[in-house]
């Protein structure tokens, strides 16, 4: 059986942790990095954060919140056998456009490597994996139906298959993001957790605000 031990989320106005029942207002995504450092949500500075594309930033923010919610600690240089799977609607479309426009505007003389690296949809997940030391499998997946519930189910099955004892499942767009920490129920020793089925059901809502409302309404529905 799979348990969800942490859920972190954010949008333009708020961010929070579902299991820890935390909701905080925010002034804007630009100020969030400073807040996260001050509140030790980032245990240490994220290398090269200022050059990240928008989805890499929201991915790292919500992964930090989810890990905090799950009580999973991380430190620089120490890797953990945790995977990270991601899905989102727009892939890396904006980064593709930004990179190619910049190249065309340069007169097709020199592209910028800093922009090119974000033209892979898996790169935001990789940025998170590097910062948090996640050495399990890393995949970006686009499902052609029920994206978030499909992602959660896919991650749960990968844990049962033995690919990693824990997997972060992330759906990150440029201004909204949610991240779930999935672990085998047997591996969860203490602390609150939610049943994957209940979380998946809440994730079936059609838009992000409804999903977050449904998730925060789950309360303490343990497996």
């Amino acid at each position: 059986m799979i348990a969800v031990t942490g859920i972190g989320w954010l949008n333009r106005k708020e961010y929070g942790c579902v299991i820890g029942n935390i909701i905080k207002r925010l002034e804007g995504l630009d100020s969030l990095y400073t807040s996260f450092k001050r509140e030790s949500i980032f245990s240490y500075p994220v290398k090269n954060f200022s050059r990240f594309d928008a989805i890499s930033k929201t991915t790292c923010f919500c992964a930090a919140l989810a890990l905090k919610d799950a009580g999973i600690y991380y430190s620089a240089g120490q890797k953990q056998d945790i995977g990270i799977f991601g899905a989102n609607e727009s892939g890396c479309l904006e980064s593709n456009i930004n990179y190619f426009k910049d190249y065309i505007e340069s007169g097709r003389i020199l592209a910028r490597g800093n922009l090119f690296i974000y033209t892979l949809p898996s790169i935001p997940l990789a940025e998170a994996a590097i910062h948090f030391g996640l050495s399990g499998p890393l995949l970006h997946i686009s499902f052609n139906e029920k994206s978030l519930p499909s992602l959660l189910s896919f991650a749960g099955k990968s844990i049962l298959e033995g690919e990693a004892p824990a997997i972060l499942a992330v759906q990150a767009e440029e201004t909204d993001a949610v991240c779930f920490v999935l672990q085998s129920k047997d591996a969860v020793s203490s602390g609150k957790s939610l049943c994957l089925e209940a979380v998946s059901s809440a994730a079936e809502k059609t838009n992000f605000p409804e999903i977050i409302t449904a998730l925060t309404g789950l309360g303490n529905r343990d497996c």
């Binding site: 890797k79 995977g83 990270i84 690296i117 790169i123 990789a126 940025e127 994996a129 590097i130 948090f132 030391g133 996640l134 050495s135 399990g136 499998p137 890393l138 995949l139 690919e163």
Partner: peptide, 20 residues
């Protein structure tokens, strides 16, 4: 399937991610 969790474009020099 594994991840080096090391660098965005370069591989882990000791090959530990791939050997795993």
């Amino acid at each position: 399937l594994t991840n080096d969790a090391n660098h965005i474009t370069g591989p882990s020099k000791d090959g530990s991610g791939l050997s795993k």
